[in-house]
């Protein structure tokens, strides 16, 4: 199957695979699991932050997820990539959190500030506005649509990978994405003219229209 995008530098691809690290962890290697955490924490953080829209909730969810993965590593059967398995645990931790209690409404400023603390944005004004509107808009979606859009549109995973993570058929992922995008389109349409997205989108639309 396709695995989610590799870390940015394929040149220095680690000699030890995730699966080997997980096996070492199960066999009692005290450092193997922290290496897994180190490799994947940024992506897990991004998924949780975008799915939950709240840095505190996201931190709790990612922590729960990693501890849970640590505990149940022995149940990993190798039927999916380790990254897929980790994503599944993180996404489920997020969905559990959203189900258990309605996530505290968070000021978008707060989320943006949390984001900027770590990643100085190249173009503060445009990207900040876009980011704020996107996080606000995502919160209007039902959690299943939000989770699908975060994985497919924001994180760039294939529909098949997202289906494995969410443990639903690919068609379900597509339909959740379609319904989510339909809800977001009126809210985010004005951003089309903000950047150079307009040209790309029109070309895409034309292509679709012409079959």
């Amino acid at each position: 199957m396709n695995s989610p995008p590799e870390p940015p530098s394929p040149a220095e691809r680690p000699a030890v695979t995730d699966a080997e690290l997980l096996a070492a962890h199960i066999n009692g290697d005290p450092h193997a699991f922290s290496e897994i955490v180190k490799r994947h924490r940024d992506r897990m953080w991004a998924v949780a932050l975008r799915t939950l829209g709240d840095p505190d909730e996201a931190a709790d969810a990612v922590q729960d997820a990693f501890v849970s993965a640590y505990r149940k590593a022995a149940t990993f059967r190798g039927e999916a990539a380790v990254t897929t398995w980790l994503h599944r645990i993180v996404v489920n931790a997020c969905l559990d959190r959203m189900r258990r209690k309605s996530v505290r409404p968070v000021a978008d400023d707060e989320l943006i500030e949390a984001a900027e603390r770590e990643t100085p944005l190249p173009d503060q004004t445009v990207e900040r506005e876009v980011s704020m509107e996107v996080s606000a808009a995502l919160k209007l979606l039902p959690s299943d649509q939000r989770a699908a859009l975060v994985l497919v549109d924001m994180m760039g995973y294939s529909v098949e990978d997202a289906a494995q993570v969410l443990q639903v058929p690919s068609g379900t992922v597509k339909s959740r994405c379609a319904r989510g995008r339909a809800k977001l389109a009126p809210i985010l349409s004005h951003l089309r003219n903000r950047t150079d997205l307009d040209r790309v989108s029109s070309a895409k639309g034309a292509e679709l229209r012409d079959g």
Binding site: R41, D42, M44, W45, A46, L49, R50, V62, A114, A115, E116, R117, E118, T119, L121, E127, V130, S131, V134, S135, L149, D153, M154, M155, G156, L184, L188, L191, T195, L197
Partner: peptide, 10 residues
């Protein structure tokens, strides 16, 4: 727009 939204490091 979703793809262009930055995802911060942990």
């Amino acid at each position: 727009v979703l793809a262009a939204t930055p995802t911060p490091a942990m």
